[in-house]
């Protein structure tokens, strides 16, 4: 089973983070929700591996960690 990579893997983390915020800039809550949903679907398809996605879903839903 492919393991979800939880080690740092972003080449330039700060750039990505600011780009992530930039696509939400001056958007309404509704627009932002839509963008986030699209982003999740696009990334999930890119990952493809069902085992990896299940681990990601599990981790994301553990809201306390």
């Amino acid at each position: 089973m492919e393991k979800l990579n939880l080690n740092p893997n972003l080449y330039s983390a700060d750039d990505f983070y600011s780009e992530l915020l930039a696509i939400h800039e001056s958007r309404s809550k509704e627009e932002s929700d839509t963008i986030n949903a699209r982003l999740i679907l696009i990334l999930a398809n890119h990952i493809g591996d069902h085992d990896v996605l299940k681990q990601a879903l599990q981790l994301a839903s553990e809201t306390t960690s």
Binding site: D33, T34, A37, R38, L41, I42
Partner: peptide, 12 residues
């Protein structure tokens, strides 16, 4: 949220 995802799927 399920409507947001549904509409996102349809638009994409």
């Amino acid at each position: 949220i399920s409507r947001i995802f549904r509409d996102a799927v349809l638009n994409l």
